[in-house]
């Protein structure tokens, strides 16, 4: 049995179906990428996994527990933590308060002081800015807070939605370096990205999502050499 197992998932926004009969899995300790273009359903998939958009049918099993009907707060308690697209920081709260709110769940709250130290070690910049309001930060710093806030929740599975979106190339590289460190520290990572090259080179496996269906899956190295991925996503 896999760490995260998704079976025959159907997700709708109102009457519009976005995800069709999707099955996938993530093993413990893996880094898995989901790649695909705009509107392929990548973000919706993460929202279904984190309980923001409950799936209409299908199953989500995490460490053997069925979570497809659980509310977001219960899913976080189980250890699935979603770092949303566009960062979604609490704009009028300080950097430190943003991070501490990340540790709201009971599991993380008990160890929040130590986790805060670890996050500051990973992002020394945030320590310097801890008293600043989140909305005064630059885009790169905001992304650091978003990832740090996710780590504060003590994730067993960390899901990141487009962490490189809107960042300068040099910052993109540093964000991916950080993700590598997080993965090496033992956190399982599910990564949704448009930056296919960076995300696949970091991952063990990948899924290609098109129009709400998985069209291709396999080891990341194979996907990078796949002719379809090359023409459609790498522009080669």
């Amino acid at each position: 049995m896999s760490f995260l197992e998704v079976k025959h998932l159907d997700v709708f926004y109102g009457d519009v179906q976005v995800i069709f009969d999707l099955s996938m899995h993530v093993d413990e300790g893996e880094v898995v990428s989901i790649i695909g273009g705009n509107g392929a359903g990548k973000s919706t998939l993460l929202k279904a996994l984190s309980g923001l958009v409950p799936p209409r049918s299908g199953e989500i099993l995490f460490q053997g527990r069925a979570l497809h009907r659980a509310p977001p707060e219960e899913i976080v308690e189980e250890g699935i933590v979603h770092v949303p697209e566009g960062r979604r920081l609490f704009s009028l709260m300080s950097v430190k308060d943003n991070l501490i709110v990340g540790a709201y769940n009971r599991r993380a709250d008990a160890v929040k002081d130590r986790t805060l130290g670890e996050v500051y070690e990973l992002f020394p910049r945030l320590k310097e800015r801890e008293a600043q309001m989140a909305l005064t930060l630059s885009g790169g710093e905001q992304q650091m807070v978003a990832i740090g806030r996710g780590l504060m929740a003590k994730p067993r599975l960390l899901m990141l939605d487009e962490p490189s979106l809107g960042l300068a190339p040099i910052l993109v590289k540093s964000i991916f370096d950080t993700l590598k460190k997080i993965a090496q520290a033992g956190t399982t990572v599910l990564l949704v990205e448009q930056d296919v090259k960076h995300s696949l080179s970091l991952s063990h496996r990948g899924y290609v999502l098109e129009h709400g269906r998985i069209v291709l899956e396999g080891p990341a190295a194979d996907l990078l050499n796949d002719p379809h991925v090359k023409t459609a996503y790498l522009g080669l």
Binding site: P71, P72, E73, F90, D97, V101, Y104
Partner: peptide
């Protein structure tokens, strides 16, 4: 802790949900 959760919810209710706040 609860006060911060209330503030977070007031700023972005969906993001607050993702922090495990009901």
């Amino acid at each position: 802790r609860l006060g911060r959760a209330v503030r977070a919810t007031s700023l972005d209710r969906q993001a607050a949900s993702l922090m495990g706040i009901n």
